[in-house]
Design a protein around this nucleic acid. Structure first.
Length: 211
DNA sequence: GACGTGATTGTA
DNA sequence: ACAATCACGTCC
């Protein structure tokens, strides 16, 4: 111990064994750390979105029940749910609620606090460091998440873990409608830290090209 | 504002 | 089998 870096225990599984609407704001300011091939990138979460489960939330991937893709969301809490979308992007969620019940929190944006060089190399399109993990697919890319990371545990103190961070003052908490969802717009289940440059700009869902 | 890109899923 | 959709990012 002495003057070396103190080991920080990851957040316990009980942290995730709650309603996503409770877990989501509590995630702000925490730090997701991933070590891959000896390279560490850690991201302080600044923007997240809560998704409920079957029959509760039309915007949730689990709204219509368990499918091969979303089965991790029905598993035990404290695991990573990674999905592939738009033919090119990955996005990551943290699974909430007890096993058998679905729900999760989408990691929308964060600040790279460790491994800037590694994150830059994974995100060559980012001109500024604040863009490295600004947006869910960018965050996943900076963390090098892919299909193989679907279902990974973040509570066991392995190469992937969620660490406590400096608490966010309540006055800085903001909520609003989720981004990019066409249903469930009335539910203000997006949470972010006010004044953070890493928070993705809100763009209302726009209808895609029609034939 | 437009488009890439391919898995997933509901519908038939 | 088929076609629409998609919790997005990049460049114009």
């Amino acid at each position: 111990m002495l003057h070396t870096a103190t080991e920080v225990a990851p957040l316990p599984r009980s942290f995730f064994d709650r309603d996503p609407l409770v877990v989501a704001p509590a995630l702000l300011g925490t730090v997701l750390r991933h070590e891959l091939d000896g390279q560490v990138v850690a991201i302080r979460l600044t923007e997240v979105e809560a998704y409920l489960g079957e029959g509760e939330d039309p915007a949730s991937h689990t709204h219509r029940g368990m499918r091969p893709r979303n089965k991790v969301m029905f598993g035990p809490p404290g695991h990573l749910y990674v999905y592939f979308t738009y033919g090119m992007h990955y996005c990551a969620n943290l699974v909430c609620r007890p096993e058998g019940m679905s729900g999760g929190v989408l990691l929308r944006a964060g600040e790279v606090v460790t491994g800037l060089e590694v994150a830059r190399s994974r995100r060559p399109a980012s001109k500024r460091d604040i863009d490295l993990a600004r947006g869910p697919a960018r965050l996943a890319s900076a963390m090098a998440f892919g299909r193989e990371d679907d279902g990974r545990d973040v509570c066991s103190g392995t190469s992937l873990s969620l660490l406590p961070g400096k608490p966010v003052p309540r006055a800085k908490l903001r909520t609003g409608p989720r981004v990019g969802v066409s249903v469930g717009v009335e539910s203000p289940w997006r949470y972010w830290i006010d004044g953070e440059p890493t928070v993705s700009v809100y763009r209302p869902a726009v209808a895609r090209r029609r034939p």
